[in-house]
Design a protein around this nucleic acid. Structure first.
Length: 665
DNA sequence: AGTCGAGTTCTTTTT
DNA sequence: GAACTCGACT
């Protein structure tokens, strides 16, 4: 397609942008690239999002409509950030674009065309723990003794195996062979479990995360009219964090982009999701799948001091040679202090050091919100959290116990889900199990009875559950409470249809569950507050389906971050979640073998991904970087800890060692 | 058979 | 904290 269309066609006008002045040469070349396939290799801190943002503006200037541009990202955070910045630059409201995570787009399209492949409009999405229990049920039905044998994989692991197979587009046998060879003998059996699991989901009209991607591929591959519609509709496709896409996601991009008007942006050195099937060879093979691909490299780094970049580059040099694109970040900034290396006695001393140093930084005029503490896994921050709380230093922690995974939130969502899709047995089981003497089995039996009654008498399942013949089957202790619960669900279901999702949510809180919360939790006021904040969240949605999908797909978001995103808080986060962010001062803690890299990664010989993760962490820092490692482990760790292999691989002149004075004895 | 309570173990990363 | 196991209770 020729881009030189009438540039009023986009329907939006914004002040002319001087691309040459606002972008460097590398960025400019990428942002104004000709329409064909393009691969942008953008190093950390090189202005990747900026380039993408200007690319979108440029496309609009060329006459493309917002609705013709598809923006795919890997995480919700990345999606939000990119769309916000596009809106800032061009004034085009972000909802005018098709943008979001692969799962989000899958959910949207499945909702429109799902019936072609047997997914009704009322389908609901399982979160990972729902999926896990359903998998468990499927297994128990086929082989009741399976979990009795401790050598057999648990439901959770089976879910992981299945997920891996699907995300890499391998058969169960192939995936077990490649990623779980110790279960080789079970492969045939496990494949049957997966079939049963798949069948159960269809019966309940529920889908799991992977279905959102897999069904999308199925729709596009097998239904020409759908494929052609979207290929036409999406005149240009931009993919962010391309190195973290897996084979299934890459396939989605290729199916949408049969016309090759596609730009993939990524950095193979930052691929940190291979445990989810991410495959950075997607980058290396991109030019083969999109003939005529032009490659743009963006390597000038505006974020970090030269000293930090030297260290980051050294991390990459010690990588095992592979098929990576060669890259070296070039500094644009002035010289500053070298990164610090701090050996500490144990995690306690590490915590003390951080608190002390933060005190010093504050005295120097640094804002608390300019400081981040990064770690490999959440439990490594527990010490620190307690100490910070004790000293009244405000901090913001990205995840930990996730908001949407707390019991009361999930209970409420389960009610909405069941009220909306009464075939969603998983949700019903969760709700019904709140009553004494009712567990999953009893709930299933009652649901079945209710469904049969409903079919015979042409009523809804909920009305069936209220029939005296079924109430008689409810265990005695719960017989009085049962109708109250079901009536409450009945009210919610009515509001699902006749009024807004927010109203239905409010009804759920005012109904049976509100009373339950008061009786069940000693901290019920704060739980009720959480639930009420859900109403506020629900107000943004006109349709129940949208709300439910968002609740499941956003499950890593904390409302804490959405609601009380105050300034002036110290940031605690895993390296994974810090991706794409930057901070003037960064502490990386727990840099010892067994902690970072994790013991498991060492055992499985999977060090290189951990190294890339370390690289991601290091490149978050703008001015000051503190790398600390405890020498004595806490509980469950070996007594002596070696400094991380990643530290040992660094030339000594790249950092300065801080020797702590032993203060206590 | 299914549910419940007490005691035990173990924590990666995200949609 | 939560998920799991095991034994007891309905």
């Amino acid at each position: 397609m020729d881009f030189s269309l009438d540039n009023k066609r986009s329907g939006f006008s914004f002040p002319p942008i001087d691309y040459g002045a606002q972008l460097n040469d590398e960025q400019f070349a990428a942002a104004t690239a000709p329409p064909g396939p393009a691969l942008v290799l953008a190093g950390a801190g090189s202005g990747k999002t900026r380039t993408l943002t200007y690319r979108v503006a440029w496309l609009l200037e060329q006459g493309m409509r917002p609705g013709e541009i598809l923006l795919l990202t890997f995480t919700n955070k990345a999606a939000r950030e990119m769309l916000e910045r596009v809106e800032e630059l061009t004034g085009v409201p972000s909802h005018r674009f098709w943008g979001g995570t692969f799962h989000h787009i899958g959910q949207k399209i499945l909702r429109i065309h799902g019936e072609l492949i047997g997914i009704g409009k009322q389908y609901t999405i399982l979160d990972s723990s729902d999926a896990e229990s359903l998998m468990g049920e499927a297994v128990r039905e086929l082989d009741p003794g399976f979990f009795k044998n401790k050598a057999n994989p648990k439901a959770r692991l089976l879910g992981d195996i299945y997920s891996m197979a699907r995300n890499t587009r391998l058969t169960t046998e192939q995936a077990v062979d490649r990623y779980f060879p110790h279960f080789k003998e079970l492969a045939g059996k496990v494949a049957l479990f997966f079939e049963a699991y798949q069948k159960k989901k269809l019966e309940q009209q529920v889908v799991d995360y992977d279905d959102l991607l897999e069904y999308l591929v199925l729709l596009l591959e097998n239904h020409e009219e759908v494929r052609e519609y979207y290929q036409n509709r999406f005149q240009y496709i931009l993919v962010d964090e391309y190195q973290d896409t897996n084979v299934l996601q890459a396939r989605i991009v290729d199916l949408f982009a049969a016309h090759h008007r596609v730009m993939a942006v990524g950095d193979d050195a930052q691929c940190i999701y291979s445990w989810r099937g991410a495959d950075f060879t997607n980058i290396t093979t991109f030019p083969e799948r999109h003939p005529g691909t032009k490659i743009y490299k963006i390597e000038i780094n505006y974020r970090s001091s030269p000293e930090i970049l030297d260290l980051a580059n050294a991390v990459l040099i010690s990588q095992e040679p592979g098929i990576e694109f060669k890259k070296e970040l070039r500094a644009a900034r002035d010289s500053n202090v070298r990164p610090y290396l701090i050996p500490t006695l144990d995690t306690e001393e590490q915590t003390q050091f951080i608190i002390q140093r933060i005190g010093g930084l504050l005295d120097e005029g640094v804002n608390l919100s300019d400081i981040a503490i990064l770690y490999r896994a959440h439990y490594q921050s527990l010490d620190l959290q307690m100490e910070l709380a004790r000293r009244h230093i405000p901090f913001q922690i990205t995840s930990g116990i996730r908001f949407f995974e707390q019991a009361h939130i999930r209970d409420l969502i389960a009610q909405l889900r069941f009220a909306y899709n009464q075939k969603d047995i998983s949700s019903f089981q969760r709700i019904a199990s709140l009553l004494p003497r009712i567990g999953p089995k009893t709930a299933l039996r009652l649901h079945k009875l209710g469904t049969e009654f409903a079919e015979k008498n042409k009523t809804s399942v909920i009305e069936g559950l209220l029939d005296p013949s079924i109430i008689a089957k409810v265990p005695t202790v719960s017989r009085e409470e049962w109708p109250k619960l079901i009536w409450s669900l009945h009210d919610i279901a009515e509001h699902c249809q006749k009024s807004t999702p927010a109203a239905a949510t409010q009804i759920a809180i005012d109904g049976w569950y509100g009373d339950y919360v008061r009786g069940a939790f000693n901290n019920y006021p704060s739980r009720l507050d959480d639930l009420r904040s859900l109403v506020g969240f629900a107000e943004k949605y006109d349709e129940m389906q949208d709300l439910l999908a968002q609740l499941v797909l956003l499950n890593s978001e904390t409302t804490a971050s959405a609601v009380d995103d105050e300034q002036g808080r110290l940031r605690l986060t895993t390296v994974h979640q810090a991706k794409g962010l930057e901070f003037p001062v960064v502490f990386m803690i727990g840099l010892a073998d067994g902690l970072f890299p994790l013991r498991r990664a060492i055992e499985e010989g999977d060090i290189e991904e951990e190294r890339r993760l370390f690289y991601v962490g290091v490149t978050r820092a703008m001015d000051e970087l503190y790398l600390s490692h405890p020498r004595i482990g806490g509980q469950g760790m070996p007594l002596r800890l070696e400094p991380s292999i990643f530290l040992r691989d660094l030339p000594e002149h790249l950092y300065e060692i801080i020797h702590l004075q032993r203060q206590r004895w």
